[in-house]
Design a protein around this nucleic acid. Structure first.
Ligand code: FES
Ligand code: FES
Lengths: 168, 168
DNA sequence: ATATAGTTGACCGTAACAGTAGGTTATTTG
DNA sequence: CAAATAACCTACTGTTACGGTCAACTATAT
């Protein structure tokens, strides 16, 4: 499972949807402003999310995106799988033939690691994230994340590639 | 923590060293043949491993590399950290300032995931891997991994980018 | 002296990421 | 109806890391 800002953006945007989903479809333009993610980029990501049936779209004025399932049924793993590259398991791709049709010495190591990552990301649902976030907002007394804070005509372009992939 | 074949190669090569480390320094040429990893590429990787003080080098005929510490003191996390990119924690790099100097909604998610991956990879030492491997060899009755199996003048070039990064 | 083997740096092709641009289609509202 | 909205789609760009090669150099053992 590859971890990049792509996956992070997708999860962040999905949380934005989840947090304001009561009031009908959420437009990407809003998400872009609130979360500071390029609109065009969001459109690409949501194209994938839609094809993976994680969100439903409504076109026209007042339209936008809704999360297609109950929040507890959408895991972080789902989201990342939708937007990131098609990924097979270890290096051999499960064929266990790295070395002359033998499974290599480290096959088990990597497949176990993958399982662990997957387990964790599957164990966290959007509902969990939302709950945690709302808790935090309550204790802070301010809905900082939901505020619109438009600063200019366009969301400023992010300082090109601020940090690529996840990390230790 | 980024997971690519680079890290896998490094771990594989370190295991090779560990398994034949009794007989003095191990030359990369041998590792290259046994594990089917390009010699030049190995040299790069071991340059890093050496700078991170995970291996010691001996030059000249009969030279090669030795693992610099007891096997139980070298974890997979160490190896990956040595060869993969300099990696900071989440996306903000620990500064928690993704959004207007605030920590973003997903900060905790990613840092927890990182911690989990790191925990697992730190919990596995070369000693563990070697033990597991020797167990397997014993039960199979053949030291397949240690055999020299030279097939041609050069280890065949791997079929260009067979599978890049780890995976779900 | 020569062969061995580590050390270094430059270089290359590919692919993915992050982002941009411009257009098309569907739907609501006036 | 027309205009505005917003999803949808395609193509393109620049940067970076990966995976790998090559050539030159230095240290050491025989
Ligand atoms: S990773 Fe599966 S056989 Fe090597
Ligand atoms: S990832 Fe740390 S603040 Fe966003």
């Amino acid at each position: 499972m590859r971890l990049t800002t792509k996956g992070r953006f997708a999860v962040t945007a999905m949380m934005d949807l989840a947090l304001r989903g009561d009031e009908g479809p959420v437009a990407l333009a809003g998400v872009s402003e609130r979360q500071r993610i390029s609109l065009s980029y969001l459109e690409q990501l949501f194209g994938k999310l839609r094809r993976f049936k994680l969100v439903d779209s409504v076109r026209g004025p007042g339209g936008g995106y809704c999360i297609a399932r109950p929040l507890s049924m959408v895991t972080v793993a789902d989201i990342i799988r939708a937007v990131d590259e098609p990924l097979d398991a270890t290096q051999c791709g499960g064929r266990e033939n790295c070395i002359d049709e033998h499974r290599c010495m480290t096959h088990e190591l990597w497949s176990t690691l993958n399982a662990k990552m997957y387990d964790y990301l599957s164990s966290v649902s959007l509902a969990d994230l939302v709950a945690r976030q709302q808790e935090k907002e309550a204790s802070l007394g301010a809905a900082t994340v939901l505020e619109d804070r438009r600063i200019g005509p366009h969301p400023r372009p992010r300082n090109t590639r601020d940090k690529a992939a996840v990390a230790l």
